[in-house]
Computed example of a mutant assay.
Amino acid sequence: MLPTSAASNGSAVQSTVPVLASLNLAETLQFYTQHLGFAPLLQLDNYLILQRDGCELHFWPCNDRHIAENTSCYVRGDTAVLHADFAARGLQIAPPVVQPWGMKEMFVIDPHGNLLKFGEPA
């Protein structure tokens, strides 16, 4: 039997939440708040949760840069608005590009190597 909250909206899966590696949680917090407009939901010595516009990202401390450099997540959103916002916050980022698979996309690589792709249907 489904839990009441899942059964009430007719969907068992509510959302997905990426859990990304951070080589330094304080640096992660600074980058995501300063350049990407996220706000902290939870800050612990060993875990960080950030959110923006209903998007939630979790971070765990990791000492292996190789893990972060081989991790990515896809965030759906208005790429033109996000690009303008990120640029206004001082992030140098290429503008969104329409890809052959029909998505308008741009990407950000955080200071620890995590790849964030932002996209929307073209």
Rank of each mutant, 00 (worst) to 15 (best):
V13W: 12
Q30W: 04
Q51K: 09
L23R: 10
P18K: 01
V17C: 11
V19I: 12
P61D: 00
M106R: 08
L82C: 07
Y74L: 04
L41K: 09
G119F: 04
V98L: 14
P111Y: 09
L25N: 06
C73F: 00
V17H: 05
G102M: 06
Q99Y: 01
F59S: 00
A39N: 11
V13I: 15
L29A: 09
T28G: 06
V19S: 08
V17I: 15
L41W: 03
L82A: 04
P18W: 03
R52E: 10
Y32W: 13
M103V: 05
A68V: 11
L36A: 13
C73H: 03
E69V: 00
P96K: 08
A7K: 09
Y32N: 09
M106F: 08
A87Y: 08
S15R: 14
N24Q: 13
Y74C: 01
C55G: 02
S22Q: 08
Q99C: 13
A122L: 11
M1G: 15
G37D: 15
L29C: 07
F86H: 10
R52V: 06
P95V: 10
L44S: 02
F118L: 13
G10N: 12
R52C: 11
L48M: 05
L44Y: 00
H66G: 11
D64F: 02
G90R: 11
T33M: 10
T71E: 08
S72G: 13
H58S: 07
N46A: 01
P18M: 02
